[in-house]
Design a protein around this nucleic acid. Sequence first.
DNA 1: AAAAACAATAGACCATTGTCCATGGTTGAG
DNA 2: CTCAACCATGGACAATGGTCTATTGTTTTT
Lengths: 112, 112
Amino acid sequence: MRIGELAQKSGFSRDTIRFYEQNGLITSTVGDSETNSYRNYKNDCLVWLKFFAGAREAGMSVADLRSIVEATAESCDREVARAVIQRKIEELKERADQIGNAVRFLENTLSG
Amino acid sequence: MRIGELAQKSGFSRDTIRFYEQNGLITSTVGDSETNSYRNYKNDCLVWLKFFAGAREAGMSVADLRSIVEATAESCDREVARAVIQRKIEELKERADQIGNAVRFLENTLSG
DNA sequence: AAAAACAATAGACCATTGTCCATGGTTGAG
DNA sequence: CTCAACCATGGACAATGGTCTATTGTTTTT
């Protein structure tokens, strides 16, 4: 699909999609048209983008996402990949703990 | 206490403390010395800073923190304050949900 | 054919969240 | 007294995550 369709389906702007692509979060290929240089995005990209939307809200950085994308690439050693992903999961859980603390603190200001 | 002590006790750098102060997260008073203009921070500041440390890790912005600080001020209407804090709690819970989703996604890439 | 919508690329621009530096004055230890 | 450590203020600088604009070319619609 082309960038416009991907934008519409993912909810990200074209600019943001290009920004993510520049940062290695997704990849596209140049179509085989002789007349234009429009890029082609696979459904894969859409899947990733949907994950990115939630992941960004969860507080993950673009660099985090990149390392995840790279880890899940075929070329990446399975052991290394597992370690990277595990690390990210732990970071997320730590953040969840901090959220729990913050919520308790705020609830206290309400009742206290 | 002076900024150095506050920095040491809170774990934030002097610069960050000044930055937070400029952004209305904490306040200090000018001491009553005739010879210097050193600022004085109350224990209150330390309590806030300790909360900020976790809250920032939880993904709250400085603007978020500011609205919380303002809401808990004496001068703020209790009803308004409650609404602000409730809102922040909900945002945190949403973020926690997103974290849950991201964790599940990542765990899937490990097992799947 | 002409206009509207879409695309690629590159670079400028913006807010956020700090950090670092320069300057100049103060305090405390030795 | 002097030197190190501290403080205040202000401004520069940097990374992150986008967004906007300009330019140029393509496709689609009318």
